[in-house]
Design a protein around this nucleic acid. Structure first.
Length: 310
DNA sequence: CGCATTTGACCTGCGC
DNA sequence: GCGCAGGTCAAATGCG
């Protein structure tokens, strides 16, 4: 109802399995994710032409990126040993989360370095279906329908400094569960996009290390448009990352090496703010090479033209 | 009345 | 094989 169908059919993920990250610290998000966020809050969004509500601007003033170390060894080394939400330097704090790689063997990822390979994962049978998806239930009382095998889609996490748990991202979500998280006083809530055709899910939880940080993890890609666009001031850039621009993120950071090195100066130093995290890599990454960001910079990669100011 | 949230039960994968 | 933790389902409940 609220959504318009046919958002961006062009890019879609199918079955990406896993997040493989080694070196993460223990924290809320599982599956291996590394978060990096700039502690200086500026308006990267406005820089990109996003009109963010004043009150949200601060909330989203952190930028983070997460990647799979597996795909980027150089980063892995850089991340290893990091604890969740620990300040790494003047500007950047980092959080790493250890995770369970769905592919113990190792390489489910592919990403930056080998785009072509990544696609393979889509065809592979979903390795691990967390949740419900396996054998037929013989539940006496509650009748549970068993979904086929759940396909793990790419996930992206955002770390946002905010007092409110549920940040407006332009989409409508229905909460379908909540669970206490081990080693964390804060519960994790599970949400699903209200659009019946959309399979995007997201989990929201607070960092046990820093309660002021909300970790939002998106899984999947919206098959429709958000309720509002950034320039309208209603949506947060989160929406943009929420499954729509994922592949671009890693690409953007791609050059490999240290995170800092990858972030354009304009962003790295004082403008990066939000926390975007690419977790699952997207096999859909079309470009084998990373061209230096154009003047559009990050926005050009992650924000579709239609979502920009212009 | 319809939809969203709450909440306990259930399922699955993983580690020991 | 067992227990734990994460993730999901669905009935119950609340709210507009």
């Amino acid at each position: 109802m609220e959504d318009k169908e046919g958002g961006n059919p062009g890019a879609e993920f199918t079955s990406e399995s896993s997040w493989t990250l080694s070196g993460g610290g223990p924290d809320s998000v599982s599956n291996g994710v590394n978060y990096f966020f700039d502690r200086e809050s500026t308006s990267i969004l406005s820089e990109f032409g996003w009109d963010l509500p004043p009150d949200h601007a601060d909330e989203f003033g952190r930028f983070a990126e997460l990647d799979r170390t597996e795909a980027r060894p150089e980063l892995a080394g850089n991340f290893s040993g990091s604890q969740s939400c620990a300040a790494a330097d003047d500007h950047v704090a980092r959080c790493s989360v250890s995770g369970t790689a769905s592919n113990p063997g190792g390489s489910a990822d592919v990403s930056t370095s080998n785009p072509s390979v990544s696609s393979s994962s889509s065809e592979d049978p979903p390795e691990k279906s967390t949740g419900s998806g396996g054998k037929p239930p013989e539940i006496p009382s509650k009748v549970r329908k068993k979904a086929p095998k759940r396909i793990r889609q790419p996930r992206f996490a955002f770390m946002t400094k905010s007092e409110v748990d549920h940040l407006e991202d332009g989409y409508r979500w229905r909460k379908y569960g909540q669970k206490a998280v081990k080693n964390s006083p804060f519960p994790r809530s599970y949400h699903r996009c209200t659009n019946s055709k959309c399979t995007v899910k997201k989990t929201v939880e607070r960092s046990s290390e820093d309660p002021s940080i909300v970790i939002t993890t998106y899984e999947g890609q919206h098959c429709h448009q958000s309720l509002a666009f950034p320039r309208g001031g209603l949506i947060s850039h989160e929406a943009a990352f929420a499954g729509q621009f994922t592949p671009a993120i890693s690409q953007f950071y791609h050059p490999g090496s240290q995170l800092h090195g990858e972030i354009p100066p304009s962003i790295t130093q004082s403008q990066s703010h939000q926390a975007a995290i690419d977790v699952g890599e997207s096999r859909s990454e079309p470009k084998p090479t990373l061209e230096p960001p154009t003047d559009e910079g990050l926005l050009g990669d992650i924000v579709p033209p239609g979502m920009r100011n212009g």
